[in-house]
Design a protein around this nucleic acid. Structure first.
Lengths: 123, 123
DNA sequence: GTCATAACTCTTAATTTAATGAGTAACTAC
DNA sequence: GTAGTTACTCATTAAATTAAGAGTTATGAC
């Protein structure tokens, strides 16, 4: 999870795209592996680190931690820590998070119909 | 552009996600760099390799070729080749492609409002 | 005193993705 | 006969992303 090399063409191209359209910024976030499932999981009330980890059986700890951090940074989820031993932390969707989730469900219906098995079929 | 290693955890996790929800397959496609801009470009009538290359100033040839191939494979665009010298090839959106483009515009409005400068603001 | 627990962090290694730069075909204009 | 055109392909290198595995902290249960 070390930072990017901001002097690379790779980086400046990403910036070019994000400046052209904020959709590219959103897609860049959504394309991080596991992130949609984490968002949907939290929406459905699966709101803790360990239970999310159980649901998404193959995710590794550092990735889950990173994704939760990202979602919080983008204000799509918020985090509440309870001072207990062992610690308890709960995540919930923000209003923006709920709105995104709703939009993604629409897109999901589209992909269900149109992305069957690696190739689109006519809608 | 060589193939993936299908025995990796990286690969099997991607499959796990795509089987969980087809949205992940769609996002995986949309997350390929430049692909949304190519889709929008073609929608707006910028329908040739060279002109797309000019519009997206920093894209490299092999990436553009790969993205066009992908979009065609997913039946979001179709390709017409004219037997001329120098060759001429034109791309157009399929019905599915138009529908996707429409859906992405909605998502784009969302991201315009909510992804201001790397961090979401309340809607 | 050893183990378990939750929610993480850190380093390193494997894998995937994107970029660079050269090359191709077939013809036209100069 | 040299350069220019379009729509590509190919091999190599650079960079980014993901995964693996160990470590942390404070406490309660045994």
């Amino acid at each position: 999870m070390t930072g990017r090399k901001t002097s690379s063409t790779n980086y400046s191209n990403q910036i070019f795209l994000e400046e052209r359209c904020s959709l590219n910024e959103l897609i860049n976030l959504l394309s991080k592996r596991w992130i949609t499932e984490i968002l949907f999981g939290i929406e459905e009330g699966n709101n803790r680190f360990t239970t999310l980890k159980e649901e998404l059986r193959h995710i590794s700890d550092n990735i889950l931690a990173d994704r939760l951090r990202l979602l919080e940074e983008y204000k799509l989820i918020s985090k509440e820590s309870f001072i207990e031993i062992p610690p308890r932390v709960e995540y919930t969707l923000t209003d923006t998070g709920h709105e995104l989730s709703r939009q993604l469900e629409v897109l999901c219906n589209f992909s269900d119909q149109c992305m069957v098995s690696k190739k689109a079929v006519s809608c």
